[in-house]
Write a protein that binds this DNA or RNA. Structure first.
Length: 285
DNA sequence: TGCGTTGTTTCACC
DNA sequence: CGGTGAAACAACGC
């Protein structure tokens, strides 16, 4: 969203009112980009990069509760990310920690109710090394190589959900979207990765880019206090504990997998026979 | 008030 | 050394 709205504009003002937003930044002020033109926007995994014509790049991660709200000079507004602050209310909100103003009158409000997100300002040539240091795997928004995916799964015993959350394995999936991918692929989230059949594996490969595309289209899922407000039936399972499965009507269940809240349909997503036996044999559940 | 929340890192251990 | 699982951390709302 930011690309079409902001690229080509000059940043005329940038204020950060939460010191720790730039805590780990090489440069602790936005001064080096104020008065400069935004040349382009990039994304890798969940990291956004804004390249300015001063040779500096603003890099950011919104973590679990970051939000971008763009207000155009004509009053039109676009909001992406966390649902709080409510898009309809007035900005800045109590949770607004940075405001950017561009030369056409466009204003960007960055809010983060949990304050876990971060911004870093650094020379553009240093960005690649920073991104490399994160060790991201292949982009989930791009088609994955099914052979490499199969080989990787066969070597891992951890729950498939935990593996899909690993950004060095596939980059871009968070807790909500992993649950949605596994629902689309009809796989129990606790299934050991090496017990996922070839058919189900291919369903995962197909589902990942589709789920991420829908998440991006919606500009973030609306989940407030663990309760989803689905749009067009999405999210289908995450945040819908006790509500009927959109496919079979069975109440959605919530469990913990790898210490993460995990939603699934107990009818559509069953453990394979091998995993059930293994889990019964060790007395686990 | 302590627990839940998520993305990520760190830790002990095999 | 790498896979694993658990714990830690960030801050806040309920």
């Amino acid at each position: 969203m930011s690309e079409e709205e902001l690229v080509g504009r000059v940043l005329v003002n940038g204020s950060v009112t939460l010191c720790k937003l730039l805590r780990d930044s090489a440069i602790q002020t936005l001064d080096p980009i104020v008065g400069h033109r935004l040349l382009g926007v990039r994304r890798r995994a969940k990291v956004l990069m804004f390249d300015f014509d001063s040779g500096m790049t603003l890099v950011m991660h919104m973590k679990l509760s970051g939000q971008w709200a763009i207000r155009r000079p004509d009053g039109r507004r676009r909001v992406a990310g966390h649902p709080v602050p409510k898009p309809a209310q007035s900005y800045p909100h109590r949770a607004t920690h940075a405001v950017l103003t561009f030369d056409d009158g466009t204003t960007v409000y960055y809010s983060d109710i949990r304050q876990f997100g971060w911004w870093r300002l650094l020379p553009t040539p240093d960005v690649d090394a920073l991104i490399a240091s994160f060790g991201f795997g292949p982009e989930g928004t791009e088609p994955l190589d099914p052979k490499a995916f199969a080989a990787a799964l066969s070597r891992r015993t951890i729950p498939i959900k935990t593996l899909l959350l690993d950004q060095s394995f596939v980059a871009g999936l968070g807790n909500i979207y992993v649950d949605e991918v596994l629902f689309a692929a009809r796989i129990h989230p606790a299934t050991p990765a090496n017990n996922v059949s070839a058919v189900k594996r291919n369903r995962i490969v197909a589902a990942i880019p589709v789920v991420l595309a829908e998440g991006i289209r919606q500009e973030g899922a609306t989940i407030i206090n663990s309760i989803a407000v689905p749009e067009n039936g999405f999210p289908a399972v995450h945040g819908r504990e006790g509500q009927p499965c959109v496919r079979c009507g069975t109440p959605i269940r919530k469990i913990r997998v790898g210490a993460r809240g995990t939603y699934f349909c107990p009818n559509c997503q069953q453990l394979p026979w091998r995993a059930r036996v293994a889990s019964a044999g060790t007395g686990g559940d």
